[in-house]
Amino acid sequence: MDKEATIKIRDYFKKIWVYHIIVGLIFLMYSASVITTDGAMLKNVLMFLGYLFLLTGIGNIMYSFSGINSIRFHWGEMLFWGVVEIFSGWIILSKKLEIFEIFLLETVGDVVRRATTAELDLKGYLIVFYIGTFLIFRGISHIVTKMYNLSIPRRNYIFIIEKWLLILDGFLDLTFGIVIVISAYLAPELFNYILFLYITFSSIILILFGWSLKYSTKESEEVLENEESQLK
């Protein structure tokens, strides 16, 4: 791998690792506030999820830019999910899905009532389905990509980040995505609690990821120094 690209990525990591830790701490503080207030802050969990998607999306775009010239870095995947995360955060915070859902219920509901005289109670299902499917596909994408990376020899990496952490993040998304979709049909009253748990675990992973970036810059320097000493 090109030494110049390696140094560039390493220097970029030194600037952005703090961002992930700060974002993780902010949402971990929210989780703590939910516990200390006996669930009073739980009513705002959807809003905080929107901000989480928005800020992690910004972080992933920043992260992708650090390896934009490296194929092994998978910067395109990170850039794509960063954009999708920002869009998801915006759509949740702007309540666009709720507005569309109200319109859908008013139009489709009238048709159903005329045909069957039955009440249509689907409010909240659209946002649940969107969040669940989004997490499922993001989780699968991260797991497949990082599993592929495991087959690459350690010395060929331009930076070193613990793969188990990235794979764990993918499994976290996949698991919670499935649970969220199922909860819409079996236990809708648990939806807010599931989002709370997801935010809590995601906060911890963000903090670990930030520290992992910091650690990777140190270890990559050692790798470069060893390679240079072997060439002499």
Rank of each mutant, 00 (worst) to 15 (best):
F48S: 01
L135K: 09
S31Y: 02
R154S: 11
F73E: 04
K146Q: 14
F191T: 08
M62C: 13
V18S: 12
V144A: 05
I68Y: 11
H20T: 13
F80G: 06
L206M: 10
S202C: 02
L55Q: 05
Y30H: 00
K3P: 08
G24I: 05
L150V: 07
I182H: 00
L42S: 00
A5D: 15
I91K: 14
R114H: 07
V223T: 14
L168W: 09
R155G: 04
V84K: 03
G59D: 11
R10V: 11
G89M: 05
A187K: 15
N226M: 12
L25N: 10
G59R: 11
D169S: 10
L231F: 07
S203V: 02
I207F: 01
A40V: 13
Y63T: 01
V179Q: 09
V84G: 01
E228A: 15
E189W: 02
I16M: 01
K218C: 08
I152K: 06
Y157L: 08
F13E: 03
F73H: 13
T37Y: 02
F171E: 06
E85T: 07
F171K: 02
F87Q: 05
V179A: 13
E4W: 04
G76C: 01
I22R: 02
L166E: 10
S141N: 09
L55D: 04
L120I: 04
V83D: 03
E219G: 07
Y148P: 10
A187S: 14
R138K: 15
G67L: 03
Y198S: 00
G89H: 03
L52A: 08
